[in-house]
Design a protein around this nucleic acid. Structure first.
Lengths: 214, 214
DNA sequence: CGAGATAGATTGACTGGTCAGTCAATGCCA
DNA sequence: TGGCATTGACTGACCAGTCAATCTATCTCG
């Protein structure tokens, strides 16, 4: 629960707390939270075992910190996007882009967040259920709005649509994480396009191509 | 137990093995695989600790068995559906229905399969990657086929579409598992419809309503 | 029919190893 | 010199898996 100590600009070596967090990402991604030992994190970070406990109250707290750090950035992004006066498609594209870019930028961190938190119904998922729900609700809100404007079909429950949208994205990341889908700059861009296109326009070939632009 | 004498009392005992597996589903769903003890399974099943090891080589093997039992049924269903000469939408609907009905029939088992295997990139997911991939590939095949027939847009990579489709379904189950979405007969039926409608037809309101019957 | 034999089913105490978390000692900078 | 940073050996708890003993249902054969 520590509000996080203010990182005093100790002239010394780089912020050890940060070093530990970054090392933890690598270790958690490589071995999984349960399968790794706190000593693995310390070794990876090049610090003594005890230092991990100087900065964090427990092994759990390390993961909690990693998750919240990133998830809050995403929530802020979604809120920001939501507030803009742009077409729904663009909003959803922005969200999909953010998540996919997050993976592109730091696949290990996203792997950890998804595998150990977002989908861990019995451990951290339960702990952070509030934050997770928040994201779904924000997306659901975007869908609701689009329905009110007549851009999206009214008969689809927004919460369900939000889950389907988010689930599709997470599953793409999962495909990359599991090595089931090819990765690469081009693939990531295609994926952004695909997920928005599929969810918004559907897989079916229109009788005529979409007259609706954007 | 029920009847004392059974028609063909094979040297095998009543189904203690089954009793253990069913108990394990409940325990894994309630506490999670890592957080539960083998003794919890034995207690839940009402048998001695050692009996679990009489029927299974390890704690892992219990989960492996549960996963494979169910996953193979699903793979068989998908193959069967794939072989039928029906519209793609019906094929996808059949698959979505099967998965959702599986959850409706035994939510604990589906929770365990999804949370502990299908999404566990560092443990069981890796072990069963072959089986998991098989499902995605079969679905991808259905998409490819539909594209060849001109029913689905050709520009969407089938494997990506398959992941998005499957991911959407799994996320709905996740929503139920986490208690984020309302459950109930009606909800399950709506979900089946929604996921197929969304993925096939998209969220956008068509210029004209779907000529394709649902 | 029944004593003894056989084999699988069942029991639960016990062991060996693992690890998260503690803490007293030491290092380092202002 | 005071105080935070850092170290790493140590401990207490926990638990998967083992195993020798016991139980139970058949089967064998006199």
């Amino acid at each position: 629960m520590s509000a996080g100590r203010t990182p005093a600009p100790r002239a010394k070596s780089p912020d050890k707390r940060r070093v530990i967090l970054d090392a933890a990402v690598r270790v958690f991604a490589r071995q999984g939270f349960h399968a790794c030992r706190v000593s693995d994190i310390a070794d990876e970070a090049g610090v003594a075992y005890g230092l991990v406990y100087h900065y964090f109250g427990s092994k759990d707290e390390v993961l909690d910190t990693l998750f919240l750090e990133r998830w809050n950035v995403m929530l802020a992004l979604i809120r920001e996007v939501d507030a803009e006066a742009i077409p729904v498609r663009d909003k959803l594209r922005a969200i999909a882009s953010f998540i996919i870019d997050s993976y592109r930028h730091d696949p290990d961190l996203m792997k950890v967040i998804i595998v150990e938190v977002t989908r861990a119904a019995n451990s951290f998922g339960q702990t952070h259920i509030g934050q997770i729900r928040e994201a779904y609700e924000l997306i659901g809100g975007i869908v609701t709005e689009a329905q009110a404007e007549g851009v999206f079909k009214a008969e689809i429950e927004p919460r369900f649509a939000a889950m389907a949208f988010y689930g599709a994205i997470e599953q793409l990341l999962t495909g990359w994480i599991f090595g089931l889908l090819p990765q690469g700059e081009e693939q990531f861009e295609r994926a952004k396009w695909l997920v928005v296109e599929t969810v918004c326009g559907g897989l079916e070939a229109g009788a005529g191509e979409q007259p609706i632009l954007r």
